[in-house]
Every structure is written in structure tokens, then in C-alpha cells.
């Protein structure tokens, strides 16, 4: 008999839904007290529970051949995976937010639009694909505090109900993208085990979540949207940040922005350790002042 497939599952908010999905599909996974490893009694799966942000690393290195993870975490990892199946839970939004009251807003830093976020790669690529320079401040949690404490005037963060934003007196300026949870595979692992992996996908799709098929069977409606921070096609829902709308509107009509060229990051980014002077600094440098 062939070896069980190895799958990494995320601890935390997705854990209950993920275990429920395998239970429904006839592959119950029971983690004994504090144990992080479980075996499906049918012998199909060996599962390991790992921290969500570490999951892409385990799959990338082939320690686990398969994994279940949100697109935001997959994107931030920078690794390439085969996305096998979109799962019917855990969808959320990525939003740009600012303080409800302008007086609470942190002062803008020189050199452009500053955002605090855990989603550094997404935020940088999202705005650069639209030709908007952005200063990104990396945080690893409690992003909502950043504007109130004066770290940055804006945040980019995952938003489910919006209750956390409201509790921290923040409001959504713009929905940047929606993210889904995917069953993914290490590309080499998939190539070696494609028949068994396809069979697993079929079981999950037909027994547990028939409305969410494998990619091959997914409905046309779902196919229309593939979350991608470089996809500048969608209209901004709203924004009060002056200059962002204009820059985004101009780029939305530019087909290059749909699929940014290799140089997009260079055009809109800047080398580390350098910054653009803002208008006041330039004028000061040139000995001119506004009166």
C-alpha cells in the first residue's frame, strides 16, 4: 500500500472548519491532547497542525506535500504552489482603512502614502501595480493600533465583519481584494502523487462540499474572480485619500497595469535606504518657500 499523503493544517481560526471538512469526507482526523500529528483511519492522510504563517514553509520544503491555507498567507510567502481547490469557508477581505476622525490620523510621512500592515508583499504589489508609490511598515499583529498610535495614517488588513475596525475607531476606505482558503500542493509532490491527490480532491469536492468543485469543475461564476493584488481591473469601492483615486483610475485603463511589466516595481518602488523628497523638502532644498 502506498504511503499516506502528508498534509499540513492550520491551527487557529480555520482549524475547526478544516477538520469538519475531512470528517464530512469520511477522513476524520483526531488530534490527541496537545498532539500536533494525526492519522486518518482510512490510511489516506497523515496530518500535522502548524501555525498558519509557517504552513507555506512546510509545504514549500516538501515536509508536507499538501496544505490548507489562506491566499493572503500563500501570497506573502512568495513561494509557488499548485492551487488544487478553493474551500467553502474562511473567505475574507483585504481592506485599506483609516481613522474615523481625521484628527486621530497619524501625520503623513514624507515621501508618500504610508501604510502599516502584516501583508507587506500584497500591499506593495497592489499599489505598485497601479503606479502608486507606497511606504509599507511591517507589523506582525494588532495592526489597528498603528493609526491611533501615530505609526501610519493608513492600514491594510484582513477584515471579516469589520467589528475590530469599528472598536478601534477605524473605517474602511477601500476593499482591495477578497481572499479564499485553498488546498495547495508542493509542485513536485503533486507531480509524484497526482493520481492520489486528484482522488482526494474529488472526495472533498463530492462528499463534503459539492458546491465547490475542483478547479476543473468549478462554476463559471467562481471562475470570474481570481484574487490577485496585481489585478487592477476592479474599480475601487471608495476612497478619500486624495491622489490615490486619480492614480488608480488612470492605471485601471492602462492594460499594462492588468499585467504589470517586470519593471513596475522599479518604476514605483525605490531602493531600500533611500526616499523621495516631498514637495516641501524639494522647495526647501531649492531655497524656495510657499508664502
Amino acid at each position: 500500500m502506498s504511503m499516506p499523503l502528508r498534509i499540513a493544517l492550520p491551527k487557529g481560526r480555520l482549524q475547526k472548519d478544516v477538520l469538519g471538512l475531512f470528517q464530512q469526507a469520511g477522513m476524520p482526523l483526531e488530534f490527541a491532547d496537545r498532539s500536533l500529528i494525526a492519522h486518518d483511519p482510512t490510511g489516506r492522510l497523515d496530518a500535522m497542525l502548524v501555525k498558519n504563517s509557517d504552513l507555506p514553509v512546510y509545504v514549500h520544503h516538501g515536509i508536507a506535500g499538501l496544505g490548507i491555507c489562506g491566499e493572503d498567507t500563500l501570497y506573502e510567502s512568495g513561494f509557488e504552489f499548485v492551487r488544487l481547490m478553493r474551500l467553502p469557508f474562511g473567505s475574507t477581505r483585504i481592506c485599506l482603512a483609516e481613522p474615523e476622525t481625521p484628527s486621530d490620523q497619524a501625520p503623513a510621512r514624507s515621501g508618500g502614502f504610508t501604510v502599516a500592515t502584516t501583508l507587506v508583499r500584497f500591499t506593495r504589489d497592489y499599489y505598485h501595480a497601479r503606479g502608486i508609490p507606497v511606504n509599507v511598515i511591517r507589523l506582525s499583529g494588532s495592526v489597528e493600533l498603528a493609526p491611533r498610535l501615530g505609526l501610519a495614517p493608513y492600514i491594510v488588513d484582513l477584515v471579516e465583519s469589520g467589528a475590530t475596525l469599528t472598536a478601534n475607531k477605524l473605517r474602511i476606505l477601500e476593499d482591495l481584494d477578497t481572499v479564499s482558503v485553498f488546498l495547495v500542493a508542493n509542485p513536485a509532490y503533486y507531480k509524484l502523487n497526482f493520481r492520489r491527490v486528484d482522488e482526494l480532491c474529488g472526495m472533498l469536492a463530492s462528499h463534503a462540499a459539492p458546491e465547490f468543485g475542483t478547479k476543473h469543475a468549478r462554476s463559471e461564476q467562481q471562475n470570474r474572480h481570481t484574487p490577485n493584488p496585481r489585478n487592477a481591473e476592479r474599480e475601487a469601492t471608495s476612497t478619500s485619500a486624495e491622489g490615490l483615486n486619480a492614480a488608480e483610475g488612470a492605471n485601471a485603463k492602462d492594460t499594462r497595469a492588468l499585467h504589470p511589466s517586470a519593471d513596475t516595481r522599479r518604476r514605483t518602488g525605490r531602493p531600500r535606504g533611500t526616499r523621495h523628497a516631498n514637495r516641501q523638502e524639494m522647495e526647501r532644498h531649492n531655497g524656495q518657500t510657499d508664502t
Partner: peptide, 16 residues
């Protein structure tokens, strides 16, 4: 760039 994107999508089996 679009050709490269299609190549990458095929390689990663992003058939959508």
C-alpha cells in the same frame, strides 16, 4: 508579460 503569466499559470496548473 502576459505570455510569461500564461506560462506560469500552466506550470502551476492554474487552469482557471
Amino acid at each position: 508579460s502576459n505570455a510569461a503569466e500564461l506560462g506560469s499559470a500552466i506550470r502551476l496548473r492554474d487552469l482557471d
